[in-house]
Design a binder for these strands. Sequence first.
RNA 1: GCCGCGUUGGUCAAUCGGUUAAGACGCCUCCCUUUCACGGAGGAAUGAGGGGUUCGAUUCCCCUACGCGGUACCA
Length: 519
Amino acid sequence: MARKVRVRFAPSPTGGLHLGGVRTVLYNYLFARRHGGDFILRIEDTDQSRYVPGAEQYIFDSLAWCGLEPDEGPHKGGAFGPYRQSERKALGIYEKYAKQLLEQGHAYYAFDTPEELDAMREKYKTPENPSPQYNFAIRHKMRNSLHLPPDETQKLLASGTPHTIRIKLEPNHDVHFTDMIRGAVTFSTNGVDDKVLLKTDGMPTYHLAVVVDDYLMQISHAFRGEEWLPSAPVHILLWTWLFGVDKMPHWAHLPLILKPDGHGKLSKRDGDRLGFPVFAMNWTDPKTGETATGFRETGFLPQAFVNLLALLGWNDGTGQELFTMDELRESFSMDRVHKGGAKFDYEKAKWFNHEWIKWLPASSYSDLVRTFFHEQPATETAAERELAEPDKEKFEKVLDLVKERCHLLPDFVQQAGFFFHRPATYDLDSIRPKWNEAKQVFFAELIRQLELGTTWEAGPLETSFKEMAAAKGIKAGELLAPLRIMLVGGKFGPPVFEIAAILGREETIGRIRHVLGML
RNA sequence: GCCGCGUUGGUCAAUCGGUUAAGACGCCUCCCUUUCACGGAGGAAUGAGGGGUUCGAUUCCCCUACGCGGUACCA
């Protein structure tokens, strides 16, 4: 019987969560949901020096925003806690397994100081081998329990000499494993060094912690970025020695998300440089005070963000690009994830957002849009206030009317702002060249007619406007442009009579009169 | 340097030996629209190079080139 699917996302709380991280979460989450499994969040805070306060909370918030909340985790609890590795370390969990490895002869004590390690790398560095490794070839030249006399080792340990525990890799041994995305993969132990398993401070390194915790938390599938592929043999070996490969999770190494230009992994810096967000939400580094903008604050809908991330390295083979979370849960499969990395394309990302804005009813994101409407001109009269603070229904009606013009949520400010306050500027230069006495008279009469009219709807408004133009012998087209600029301020926006209909009689007349006075 | 993983238009990509090599983004043209968009119809643009295997290779194998990742008491 197949065991229950359990997957985990295991970030270290060192900063904001970027695109690649969220996508890893997403693939984990989708896989879990697809197979009726559990999605676990585990915090890998084993590096004290890189710990950033607030980063953990930021991760929770980001996942919540994306709708990718874990079933188990530090805040959620669960039967396999604690879910922070620092807390697990305090329980002696990792030390126990490090000792087991020591007894099995698969690990050893190493007393080398950081300075000694540097010296070693310097000493053995050659043009052919620019980065010498602490491995079978040189470990017998270092200070470790492998070649120190047993009593010397005991003495060092007894005196509390700082030490690490390293894995002992035998040379010329091929490690094979299957990757769900790449198929059969082979590494020779010759290429990897004797990784530190337990650090001087007693904390495990990633290598030990990931294996121990995946075992203890009964993880069935381990998905992580491609950058982990080279150290996979260490993890496989640890699994075989500690728990047996039959209990080992299935592996999948996800392709990287690359810079849009040039090459290499996408980083926060690329976003700054090229002008697009890289993090899920705004992230302010507590040390430098520097803020990196997030997709949320840039005006992305979480649905669009998830959608575009899902398609960055995966597709269902049908050509479909727009997916709801439910559809993704239904069709996602790891074997359709690509092997090669994908360059991030911000234009395409905005297209996804545009599609989602058009697709969803404004009511589902009007509250979000409101948050972008903060900086409005001061309102004075009661009428202005009423205009500036539309009720929910009117607000959403306006958003639905203009949404096809908006790629990002803040675009609504530009596209719909004139519904809620008079334009700050008018594109009079587009009117003046063709402005004349006849038009002046037309609009003056238009005002009178609008004041008398009984109905106030787009259709009748347009009909009477055109009839009036015909009666005056003026082409409607010559009058439409000025009218639009009077109401909107510029040459953009929905059909002008629909705007007038929403603006209302009083405001429409007011704006015409206002601009008329300027001409 | 070494080890590993990759390589279809500018970008995301379909294809699981036989296709006029899909589709999407972006770009260009036209239509619709007396604005801006949406929408619609077109267009330019792709198998890194070289060897094999095969009746037939984008597809399978090898080599080369290129890219990326790793080579930490970081994850």
